[in-house]
Design a protein around this nucleic acid. Sequence first.
DNA 1: CAAAAACGATAGTATTACTATTAATTATAA
DNA 2: TTATAATTAATAGTAATACTATCGTTTTTG
Lengths: 225, 225
Amino acid sequence: MDAILSNISIAINEKLFVKNPETSTLGKKIIENSILLIDEIGFENFTFKKLGERIGSNESSIYRYFENKHKLLVYLSSWYWSWMEYRLVFSTNNITNPLEKLIIAIQIVTEKIEDDITTTHIDESILNKIIIQEFTKTLHTKDVDEENREGFFFIYKRVINRIVQMVHEVNPEYPFAKSLVSSIMEGATHQHFLMNHLKTITNCNAEVSPSDFYTHLITTLLKQK
Amino acid sequence: MDAILSNISIAINEKLFVKNPETSTLGKKIIENSILLIDEIGFENFTFKKLGERIGSNESSIYRYFENKHKLLVYLSSWYWSWMEYRLVFSTNNITNPLEKLIIAIQIVTEKIEDDITTTHIDESILNKIIIQEFTKTLHTKDVDEENREGFFFIYKRVINRIVQMVHEVNPEYPFAKSLVSSIMEGATHQHFLMNHLKTITNCNAEVSPSDFYTHLITTLLKQK
DNA sequence: CAAAAACGATAGTATTACTATTAATTATAA
DNA sequence: TTATAATTAATAGTAATACTATCGTTTTTG
């Protein structure tokens, strides 16, 4: 998988950046270190000035790549969901049994990313932490409708709709496929968050994973009588 | 008996405010108008200065009630969940059938609050809109662990655990009661959010409500063979 | 009616989130 | 190889935010 992934270029909506960070070393340093810095200090405390200091560059240079930190976070999220979509398609491609295929898909999108499995400048396990901690903020803004119209969440929605198709193939009668999958996608990161911070309102822990919970949930729900 | 029955009015963690806003007219104006203003311009654009201008008071006067806008949002959220808990206990109190009781509980916590059903200075339907749009931000901060230790999310967790008890009474064998209820609580506001903004990844609309989805989900899941 | 509490007004600070300009460095194409 | 184009660093500056401090006035209350 490593070898194949390193040949895949992940395409991000061009409206999310001023200059494509993948086209220069400085751009790649911005991406790499913004992930690390957001993880360390949290998105609210993250500023372009701090990032500039960290990478030995000037604040104004970072503005030449991203208009503001919100678009940078949407960029990182898009990259993540695009990477997730690749893993999803790759892992389910040749599975013919619909239920088996769906269970693998749920596993892929709900599991914790433990290891750095590629050789790019992006550490996917830390990016996964950021998604758990910060992704919700990309949606919960006053501009969500406008940004949605501009396609900022296109990849995220496409990942969901891929799994919705799999649900239909398992049980065409089930009437809430979209809500089910969107609530699993959101819920999985939420359960990881609760594991980390509010342990008294989740069953997930070292032994029980969000994947266990959601695999059980979806198989029970879609069982046909 | 129920903890809530000993609370005559809605009691909020005292660490959330400097001076209790319920004890003065200015305090009540702050609460009333912060709800309206956050709804109008969004939490990111909301400032104490703007709120002061709106209520004809000085910024510094508002700081005498709340340390910062984050604590104000946590205060409003706590008020909301406390009000929700009251509705929950009131509506399920004398229902003896466990499944019936649980379904009513799910209905209560997932339905859209349409009407202003009380006479206080707080408009619950607009507060409900704020919870849908902004509640997630109370949790997703760098200080979540410290604030959790200080009890900022106590009421929210108590509401969840009340419903967890109801799940246990319906089906003691079900192994993920906490994760199920916390994911419904989070998921319900999320489905409302998607209805408003990302309609292509939800089945919920004018005809199908998040309550329909989650009622169907929980009854199917807890059905015993 | 006196003392305490609350409030409004003003001023001030550090930080954030940018924009603009210019000079130095680096990449590229003729 | 050199001209030139693109990129980056450095500096300066602005408006807004998120506060803190002080002080005089008004309101409450004991």
